[in-house]
């Protein structure tokens, strides 16, 4: 059972920001889908005194695709992503990740901001978002700031978000025609399973040259991370199988996986190698 807490259900963003700042004496913890926070509270891993629910503010949920940008409201659910026609054209890797995310009920509840804020290295949405160079918009009573998702996480279960800040948006530039974004995850079973290795790749090619390469890795380090040295091996190059293999190997070296109940560090490294090479090969193949 959950232990007791105060619960507020404000219907304005300002109301939320007030409550998480100092609220009624104790800063409130934001709650959206609950698929992570409620589980942690039941296990008494976290025991907030005050909780603020975000579900009463419709404008926090939604997908906006403009000419240049895609912006997700923080309370956009994983199912919203999965069912979005617009994202199917400008964030395919994110849709793939949504498809592989939990079971239906969890997808119906879990939100994109929640998946970032829960700080799980095994997050499914973060690798594709990171590979898309997504930015996180943080708002508080004292203003707002934008942080690259790539710089959002600072360590295991640590991030740059202050407790008085709320994630109010996630956005990225729409990808040019000559780009591809892909995601694949390995897990111990196909349905509703925590990721063992997740890899997202985003690539742009022009005139037979790789102009942009992004490789984001999930569940293989204290946070989701980008394999930046591997990326730089590819940019400006014409990709060959040998170069792809080398970049994939480099990606394994940028990760720091651990042994846990789901897999060993050795298998995780192997998984990074295989998936990275596979996705890079696919991307390159489609763009050339």
């Amino acid at each position: 059972m959950l232990s007791g807490f105060e619960l507020d259900l404000p219907d304005t963003l300002v109301g939320v920001l007030d409550l998480i700042a100092d609220g009624r004496g104790t800063p409130a913890v934001p709650l959206a889908g609950g698929t992570s926070l409620i589980v942690d509270m039941r296990a008494r891993r976290t025991m907030p005194n005050a909780v603020v629910w975000l579900g009463k503010i419709p404008e926090l949920r939604g997908i906006q695709v403009t000419q240049d940008h895609v912006r997700l409201g923080p309370c956009t659910t994983v199912s919203d992503i999965l069912n979005s026609d617009e994202l199917a054209g400008s964030g395919v890797s994110l849709v793939r990740a949504a498809e592989a995310f939990g079971g239906q009920m969890v997808r119906n509840a879990a939100t994109v901001a929640g998946n970032i804020a829960c700080n799980s290295p095994a997050s499914d949405l973060v690798p594709p978002l990171m590979a898309l160079d997504a930015e996180v918009i943080l708002e508080s009573r004292s203003g707002s700031r934008t942080v690259a998702l790539d710089r959002y996480f600072t360590g295991y279960k640590e991030d740059v978000r202050r407790t008085d800040e709320l994630i109010t948006g996630i956005s990225w530039k729409r990808q040019e025609e000559s780009s591809v974004d892909l995601f694949h995850k390995l897990a111990r079973r196909k349905g509703d399973a925590i990721t063992v290795v997740g890899v997202a790749v985003n690539m742009a090619v022009s005139d037979g040259t790789c102009m942009r390469a992004r490789i984001a890795l999930g569940a293989v380090a204290p946070t989701v991370l980008r394999a930046k040295r591997a990326e730089s091996m590819l940019e400006g190059e014409t990709l060959t199988p040998g170069l792809i293999e080398a970049a994939a190997r480099q990606a394994t070296e940028e990760a720091s996986p651990i042994d846990d109940v789901r897999a060993s560090a050795t298998y995780r490294r192997h998984g990074i190698q295989v998936l990275t090479a596979r996705l890079l090969t696919q991307a390159w193949g489609r763009l050339t």
């Binding site: 619960l7 259900l9 709650l31 889908g33 609950g34 698929t35 409620i38 589980v39 629910w53 579900g55 199912s79 239906q104 009920m105 969890v106 119906n108 509840a109």
Partner: peptide, 13 residues
Amino acid sequence: GVALDSCLTLAWT
């Protein structure tokens, strides 16, 4: 109309 796990949903919401 949308399926949710009621174990993860607070009654107030």
